[in-house]
């Protein structure tokens, strides 16, 4: 490990989350989007994308965030990075309230939290060399004056992310999808952040390359003590990389638990249904499994139902479910679930 990259204040044994203070705490986060503006002067109609989201991420830990399309996974990622404004709730980063940080202070904050993008083909500027792309964070934060000055430092980053040594002067289109994602990761690491939001970093990649990138992320975590918010819809990938897993449904967290607890002993009916959909790589086992399919409509983003958002599809639903929102309740030391019946 080079001196240039070992500056992070990581716990000695990252991975095993301890009772350390969380690096990121989200409390009661809500996000509303402006849907449309009926007239120039009138107030825009609003759509609630996230409601009352609370979770913690400890240093060196990976929180997997799973949910179906439109459930608000990406919105959570963007909100904790302060890319979109919150309408309610608080975001604490290393104990500091960053909910309303703006302007120059927000720009400074970027040094500590970074984003890895879903689409490695669109997230790299096609007109910039790899050196310029990876060195840009260092330049805009005044750490180096020019990309050339950072050449050695960038070389170290490229080596760390497993890119060829002559990658510096090439343009992104000369690389494969997996390599491009490595460039994106190198860019995110350039500022030595402690926390990275990985927004479906492998879903645009070939299955064969996926494992490589996931393993790279894990190795980097071990080496640099990074904390990840790992957003994905691939449950097997999430199981592989996460320490804890949060399940998101229609803008609300329905269950958060330790990875093994969640996969072995899911409590929320939605989690059960999700897990039953994961294919098992063994035909006989796969055939013997019972697939839980719940009928009913997926709630419309613009008009959330009252009560539990899952009640229309839930087999256990009672009248109470359609009237009152179930709170996220701690059932075990590291297992929270939002259901009236569990």
């Amino acid at each position: 490990m080079s001196a240039a990259l070992s500056m992070t204040t990581a716990p000695a044994t990252p991975g095993l989350a301890t009772a350390a203070d969380p690096i990121l705490s989200v409390r009661g986060l809500s996000v509303e989007y402006e849907a449309s503006r009926p007239g120039f002067w009138s107030k825009p109609t609003r759509v609630q994308a996230l409601r009352d989201i609370s979770f913690d991420i400890r240093p060196g830990e990976t929180l997997g965030l799973v949910g179906e399309s439109g459930s608000g996974k990406t919105t959570i990622g963007r909100a904790v990075l302060r890319r979109i404004d919150t309408s309610d709730g608080r975001i604490l980063f290393k104990g500091q309230d960053i909910t309303n940080v703006r302007g120059e202070a927000l720009r400074k904050l970027r040094r500590h939290m970074q984003l890895v993008f879903q689409d490695p083909y669109a997230s790299l500027n096609p007109r910039m060399r790899v050196l310029d792309i990876v060195a840009e964070p260092l330049i805009v934060h005044g750490i180096v004056r020019s990309a050339e000055e950072a050449r050695d430092q960038i070389g170290e980053l490229l080596r760390l992310t497993g890119l060829p040594r002559d990658a510096h002067d090439r343009f992104p289109h000369a690389f494969s999808g997996g390599q491009r994602q490595r460039i994106g990761i190198a860019r995110a690491l350039a500022l030595k952040p402690e926390f990275i939001v990985a927004d479906e970093p492998v879903s645009a990649l070939d299955v064969s390359v996926r494992a490589q990138v996931v393993n790279l992320l894990q190795d980097l975590q071990k080496e640099l003590g990074l904390a990840y918010l790992f957003i994905a819809h691939d449950l097997s990938v999430v199981r592989h990389i996460s320490h804890r897993v949060a399940i998101l449904h229609s803008g609300r967290l329905v269950e958060i638990a330790d990875r093994d607890t969640l996969y072995e002993n899911p409590l929320h009916p939605y989690t059960e249904a999700l897990l039953s959909a994961v294919p098992v790589p063994h035909p006989r086992t796969q055939r013997a499994r019972k697939r839980l399919i719940y009928k009913g409509d997926i709630p419309d983003v613009a008009h959330w139902p009252t009560g539990c958002h899952f009640h229309a599809r839930c087999p256990h639903a009672t009248e109470r479910c359609s009237l009152q929102v179930p709170p996220l309740v701690r059932k075990a030391p590291d297992h929270q679930v939002a259901c009236w019946h569990r």
Binding site: L81, R83, R107, Q114, L115, Q118, E136, P137, R187
Partner: peptide
Amino acid sequence: QTPYVEAAEVIGCKPAR
């Protein structure tokens, strides 16, 4: 709307840049 412009903002580029 392209991700690389968002990437530029996330790494802390000023609007002019």
